[in-house]
């Protein structure tokens, strides 16, 4: 089990998600897998705010500056300087020693400050618990604790997803980021996100 970091402590691992836009076929398997794994009770209910399935992954269809159709998947970026962590009045949002931004439900009163503080709009309220849900979901945390990959990584039929430690130069994510062109979202927001979008060649 991973532990909560106090102010000023640095995580031992810096676990990061990598999504390879050049491989993603927009099949939605990860979106579905995320919900059925982490919030199975939401498979028959909608996320009213997003008018979508209650998944920790949001699909955005857009068009590049060159007019090329593009798809973007977003989820919690596990920011190294996370605004949601800075604003949470009760310390419910915290970083663990894997560098993941997590939620302690005992301390959350549902004020939603983390939601308005997240530049990526990746938190949604569970209609019953009123917890501001996001990646990593509870079951995914259990999976990674057991050394398995999270549901979205496992479910991707195109091999477009990966999750691993940036501090380990030999991890598959480190290798990918060294060898392929990638970028982060809202780079200038100063959040130091740990969600990497690998770009097409």
């Amino acid at each position: 089990m991973s532990t909560r970091l106090r102010k000023g402590q640095a995580p031992t691992k810096r676990m990061a998600h990598v999504w390879d836009a050049s491989k993603c076929i927009a099949c939605g398997a990860c979106v579905m897998a995320c919900t059925s794994t982490n919030n199975p009770d939401m498979m028959m209910r909608e996320e009213k705010g997003w008018n979508s399935i209650a998944s920790n992954i949001r699909r955005i269809d857009s068009v590049s500056a060159q007019g090329r159709p593009e798809v973007l998947l977003v989820q919690c970026q596990h920011c190294e300087d996370a605004p949601c962590l800075n604003t949470c009045p009760f310390g419910a949002t915290y970083m663990d020693d894997n560098g993941m931004i997590r939620l302690d439900p005992r301390m959350c009163s549902g004020c939603s400050y983390c939601v308005t503080s997240c530049p990526y709009n990746v938190r949604w309220f569970h209609p019953d618990s009123k917890l501001p849900k996001k990646c990593m979901g509870d079951t995914c945390l259990e999976l990674v604790d057991k050394g398995l990959q999270p549901a979205c990584v496992q479910s991707c039929p195109a091999g477009a997803r990966d999750y691993g430690d940036l501090n380990d130069p030999n991890s598959s994510v480190s290798v990918t980021l060294r060898t392929k062109r990638s970028r982060r979202l809202l780079e200038n927001a100063g959040t130091e996100p740990k969600y990497f979008v690998v770009e097409g060649s």
Partner: peptide, 24 residues
């Protein structure tokens, strides 16, 4: 899974018991 990159969906807390049998 990382090796094969195909779908395993582990659902819900009820599956905690099953999880020890899933190893890398």
């Amino acid at each position: 899974s990382a090796a094969v990159a195909a779908g395993v969906l582990l659902a819900d807390k009820g599956w905690v018991d099953a999880q020890p049998f899933f190893t890398p």
